[in-house]
Design a protein around this nucleic acid. Structure first.
Length: 354
DNA sequence: ATCAAAACCCGCCAAT
DNA sequence: TGATTGGCGGGTTTTG
C-alpha cells in the first residue's frame, strides 16, 4: 500500500484552469469525469487523455471539453496514493453532456452521496452516463442499471450481479452501449469504450485516427473473455457484424471470403459491406487481411514453424502472405521473426490505411 | 516479374 | 419523405 508517495499533480497555472473552464463553457460537448478519494488514476488518465486535449489529427469541427470534478474543487487522493486536483465541483456535472465514473476499490471506498445524487440528477436530465471498470458499482447502486445490461471488470462481475440482481451483468464483453448509460469492462476496456463514444459522435474515420494517435487498436473485439482465467458462458455478440468477425477469426485458416461472412451474417454482400464499413471504418476484405497478418505475428514470435505454415494458418498463400506482411509492416516475415523472437507481443496500430 | 481471372470495393439507383 | 436495402457497373486489388 502506498499511503502517500509524495507525488502531486497540480494544474499548470490559474490561467490554464480558466482556459479549460472557458472551453467547458463553450464546447458543444462537455465531458465531466468525477473523482473522489480512492478512484483509480489509470482510468482517469484514459478519459482525460481521450477527451481532454485538442486533437488536431481528428480533423473535426468540435472536440470535447473535459473537466475533472469532485464534490468540491480541490485535491483528491487517488488509489495509487497521490493527489490530483479537481478544478471543478459538482456544477460541472450539472453542465456536462457526458459524465464518466471511473473504477474504485468497491469494498473500501464509499463514493460521496452528493456526487451520486448529482449523477442521478444528470441522468434524469438526459446526460449520457459512462462507467469504466468498477465504476459500474456506483451506477448500479444509484439504480441507473436496473433492468439493463451492463458490464464491469470480469473479476468483479459476480459480485456486481450478486449485489444488484436487477442488473443483467454481461461479463464477457468489452463494453455495453445502453444508449444513455454505457459501461466498460476493466481498465483498458475504458479505451475501447471511449473510442466507441468517439465513433458514435464523430464517425469511424475519426475514431480510427484517434486510435492511431494513441497507438491502440481501433476496434478490439472478441470481448474480455480472452482475459478471463475461468471459462465463462460464451455470450455471442448479437450484432451481425460482431458475429461475422468472431466467425472469421475462428476459421482464418479456411480462407474465409467476404462472401462467406456476408452469408454468415444473413446479409446481402452489399449490405454487409456497408454495415461493416460503418461499424469498423474498414472494408471487410481489408479487415480480413489485417486480421490475418495480426494473428500471424503471435505465430511468428512463439513458433518455429516455417513461414509457409504460418501463412497457411492464417489463410494466405506463402506469396500472398509475404506480400501483405510487407505492405503492413514494411518488413519481411522472417526478418520480423528474427527481430521479435522472445520479446513481448507486438501489435502494430495500422488501422485506417492499407 | 508478369498477366489473366477472380475478388473486392464503392458510387449510384430503384425498390421497399 | 427519409431511411434502408439489394443489385449493377466498373475501377481497383488480389490471386494463382
Amino acid at each position: 500500500m502506498a499511503g502517500s508517495c509524495g507525488v502531486r499533480l497540480v494544474p499548470a497555472s490559474d490561467a490554464n484552469v480558466a482556459d479549460r473552464y472557458d472551453r467547458v463553457m463553450s464546447s458543444p460537448h462537455r465531458v465531466a469525469c468525477v473523482a473522489f478519494d480512492g478512484v483509480v488514476a489509470f482510468e482517469l488518465g484514459i478519459v482525460a487523455d481521450l477527451f481532454g486535449p485538442p486533437r488536431p489529427e481528428a480533423a473535426v469541427d468540435w472536440w470535447y471539453a473535459f473537466a475533472l470534478c469532485a464534490v468540491a474543487p480541490g485535491p483528491v487522493r487517488v488509489a495509487g496514493g497521490f493527489d490530483v486536483i479537481a478544478a471543478h465541483g459538482l456544477e460541472a456535472v450539472e453542465r456536462a453532456d457526458t459524465v464518466v465514473v471511473c473504477g474504485f476499490a468497491v469494498e473500501h471506498v464509499e463514493p460521496p452521496p452528493a456526487l451520486v445524487a448529482a449523477i442521478v440528477a444528470a441522468h434524469t436530465r438526459g446526460t449520457r452516463i459512462v462507467s469504466i471498470c468498477t465504476g459500474a458499482f456506483l451506477l448500479a447502486a444509484a439504480g441507473l442499471l436496473d433492468g439493463r445490461e451492463a458490464t464491469t471488470h470480469w473479476r468483479w462481475a459476480d459480485r456486481l450481479q450478486a449485489r444488484f440482481p436487477r442488473v443483467r451483468v454481461n461479463p464477457s464483453v468489452l463494453y455495453v452501449d445502453g444508449g444513455d448509460v454505457l459501461t466498460a469492462a476493466g481498465k483498458a476496456a475504458g479505451i475501447d469504450l471511449c473510442l466507441h463514444i468517439i465513433r458514435s459522435d464523430h464517425g469511424a474515420d475519426v475514431a480510427n485516427r484517434v486510435a492511431r494517435g494513441m497507438v491502440v487498436s481501433a476496434h478490439r473485439d472478441g470481448g474480455q473473455a480472452q482475459f478471463i482465467e475461468l471459462p465463462v458462458a460464451p455470450t455471442p455478440l448479437d450484432d451481425p457484424i460482431g458475429r461475422a468477425m468472431d466467425f472469421a477469426r475462428g476459421r482464418l485458416a479456411q480462407r474465409v471470403s467476404v462472401r462467406d461472412l456476408a452469408r454468415h451474417a444473413h446479409l446481402s454482400p452489399r449490405q454487409f459491406e456497408r454495415r461493416f464499413q460503418s461499424a469498423t471504418g474498414l472494408a471487410p476484405g481489408r479487415w480480413l487481411t489485417r486480421t490475418r497478418i495480426e494473428s500471424s505475428l503471435a505465430l511468428l514470435e512463439s513458433d518455429a514453424r516455417p513461414v509457409e505454415d504460418v501463412a497457411a494458418a492464417v489463410g494466405l498463400s506463402p506469396a500472398g502472405f509475404r506480400r501483405h506482411f510487407r505492405a503492413h509492416l514494411e518488413i519481411s516475415p522472417s526478418a520480423y521473426r528474427r527481430q521479435f523472437r522472445g520479446t513481448a507481443h507486438f501489435t502494430p496500430a495500422r488501422n485506417a490505411s492499407t
